[in-house]
């Protein structure tokens, strides 16, 4: 297991993403952050806090995509996490999806489907802490904390203080 990002580096990466968002959305008008559970939810909260201190408060929520996955045969079922829409909804907003790791792109595909059933945003962007490559769908991230080239034999483990008690990104061989 090797450490790729420590707590300070994660904060720095998020801060950079926050600045990029500000650059791209002047005044942050109509920006809505939607975190994808489990860890994307906390990343979205952190980004929202950073944006508030840099520029202006933004609305944020969570988007559970469990029932929209196309890999139900491959994963154990899990209890659904509440989908929380910001008060203003997402209609006509500039939604930024927030997740921890971008890999095959299937989660984001499911998120786009789930989002589509909640309303029609003006635009949808994607912010991820780590892009590890190996896309299986034509999806890319607009804001990336760190690109980490990986092999399929490796797994990327993101830990966040809110759930794991520590901030870190590590790479380890896939356990057989």
């Amino acid at each position: 297991m090797s450490l790729i990002l420590d707590g300070t580096e994660i904060s720095r990466a998020l801060k950079r993403i926050a600045h990029e968002i500000v650059e791209h959305h002047h005044g942050l008008n109509s920006v809505v952050l939607m975190g994808i559970p489990t860890r994307g939810k906390y990343l979205a909260e952190r980004l929202a806090a950073m944006l508030a201190s840099i520029e202006a408060p933004v609305e944020h929520g969570t988007l559970d995509i469990t029932m929209h996955r196309d890999d139900i045969r491959l994963r154990p079922p899990r209890a659904l996490v509440p989908t929380l829409l910001p008060v203003g909804g997402i209609e006509g907003k500039s939604v930024i999806l927030v997740d921890d790791v971008l890999f095959s792109g299937r989660t984001i595909r499911a998120a786009l489907d789930a989002l589509g059933e909640l309303g029609r945003p003006a635009s949808v962007q994607l912010a991820v802490l780590v892009d590890r490559g190996h896309r299986e769908l034509p999806i890319r991230a607009d804001y990336v904390g760190k690109n980490i080239p990986t092999s399929l034999k490796e797994s990327v483990k993101v830990s966040l203080i809110e759930i794991d008690g520590i901030d870190s990104v590590e790479i380890a061989p896939v356990s057989p």
């Binding site: 139900i72 994963r75 079922p77 921890d100 790791v101 797994s155 990327v156 896939v174």
Partner: peptide, 15 residues
């Protein structure tokens, strides 16, 4: 949904 969810054979680290 709970019954038809398959075993977790997907690799860890997000999809």
């Amino acid at each position: 949904y709970r019954s038809l969810g398959g075993p977790d054979i997907a690799s860890a680290g997000g999809l």
